[in-house]
Design a protein around this nucleic acid. Structure first.
Lengths: 261, 261
DNA sequence: CGCAAATTTGACGTTAGTCAAGGTTGGTGG
DNA sequence: CCACCAACCTTGACTAACGTCAAATTTGCG
């Protein structure tokens, strides 16, 4: 899986790519970046044809629903999203949250439909890479696929972590690991890891972690009382990361990436 | 060398009769098959060079451990395996079980090490596709990668189900879904779905499902008393699939997952 | 400022984990 | 073929964790 020739990576200080708004992820920090470099260097035109940049999505708006035909993948530019399946008579099940710099929809590849729905948790924006155009890329397909594989492998590993996380752990461990996971993901995409927004409802966290809303509330209170974190509205600050880490797992390495895709 | 019914214990039938002990999967039913067809037609020699067929693995033998360098993927030909990570101070965590026809190690692609260990649950055999040879395949790479992607996407979807399965469900739901999942997987690879072996220990099931061993035991007893299944030794027969299905998805659709890879 | 949504808090019940002991099974060697 | 032993599984009693229900309080948006 190597020895494939590299296209020149254009390192620009494009105004477009700079981050005027600190809530946006820089293009260079986005997971989509790995895909884009294959467009650059030889045919910039195709990049602009294929990639739609910075599409606004209003809070509560549906990016796609479960039965929408697969139209390609999205990268979160700013804001955040939750993805959920609603095949459940007793209510929706949240599959994951997507933060700036992360991809949505990759796991619907080769499917006719996404299979889950994705909604903006706040005013957000995305970049869109429509896949039906990609087969015209011919020779670059292999490079492209290598990227896809790399990210899917990441995803599988993350999901294993998630499975470990949700199975048989106490509320404190789940929530602690969840907060550390968010912290890592923000940091990885160029944001501050110690202080960040919790864009989702406690209800959503509860759903995602397999807990009740009340338990989430009580557990967060516990964290506050132990002065492990401080919370003001939707803003969270990690005051004692070591402690949080030891609560989260008697010792496991921080979780990896994202929601679906 | 297969299916010798060495356990020809002729009891009052039930779970034993239609459930031969250890069978090989037919090549055409194996997930590796999709990969292999790209070798065919032009150069059958390379197939034999690259693919090692039917390597025996003794019960309890380690197929690879977590820090072994990535050497390619395996397909279970006969028998079964469990994969587990042991980064957890509180003990190993089982990531999944692999049945005949399923792949192991695919999610270590592009990694230097497997990252988890895999052990044979019984006398088994595998086919081995060493990946370091694959980059000589040139043009076929794209097709190959497409297969990889297809399976990884599958995997991600299953893992989502698994996460849903383990989070916030009762012991009955988890175990019911687990049994149905095994049934589906056996059936998919050409075996009988109503009667099959449970190759793993109850302890392993418990670990995998995030339950205690005692709860698994009690829950299985419940299933037996409700005449939903019959169990004799390691053989299981589903007596009332509808009932099992309604136990399993007390609220949700969907089964659960395949093993890693 | 007001209302609806979100969160917090308390009381109580249920599920499944833990501890401990007893029973079964299957593999091995005599 | 049988006896034995070490895993493995089963069962019971007890308990901690967490879900549920209900009501009070806070938040935040228009």
């Amino acid at each position: 899986m190597n020895g494939l020739n590299q296209f020149a990576i254009k390192q620009t200080g494009d105004a477009e790519e700079a981050c005027p708004d600190s809530q946006e992820v820089a293009c260079a920090q986005c997971k989509l970046h790995g895909f884009l470099k294959f467009f650059e260097g030889s045919d910039l035109l195709s990049l602009n044809i294929f990639l739609s940049r910075r599409i606004p999505v209003a809070k509560g708006a549906i990016l796609f629903d479960a039965v929408a035909p697969f139209r390609g993948i999205y990268a979160v530019k700013s804001g955040s999203f939750k993805s959920f399946s609603h095949q459940d008579p007793s209510g929706d099940q949240i599959l994951g949250f997507s933060l700036p710099g992360e991809l949505i929809g990759l796991d619907a590849l080769h499917s006719s439909q996404y299979g889950y729905s994705t909604v903006a948790l706040e005013a957000s924006s995305v970049c869109w890479l429509p896949f039906e155009h990609l087969d015209v890329l011919g020779e670059r397909m292999a490079f492209f696929q290598e990227q896809v594989i790399r990210i899917l492998v990441d995803q599988v590993r993350h999901d294993h972590h998630q499975t470990l996380l949700v199975g048989r752990r106490t509320a404190e461990e789940r929530l602690g690991a969840f907060l550390l996971n968010l912290s890592d993901r923000y940091r990885r995409h160029g944001f501050e890891g110690e202080a960040f927004r919790l864009p989702m409802l406690q209800n959503d966290m509860a759903n995602y972690l397999g807990l009740s809303m009340e338990t989430v509330s009580r557990t967060l209170r516990g964290f506050r009382e132990q002065e492990v974190v401080s919370i003001q509205g939707k803003r969270l600050r990690i005051l004692n990361e070591d402690c949080l880490r030891s609560i989260a797992h008697a010792c496991r390495g921080g979780g990896d990436s994202a929601g679906p895709g």
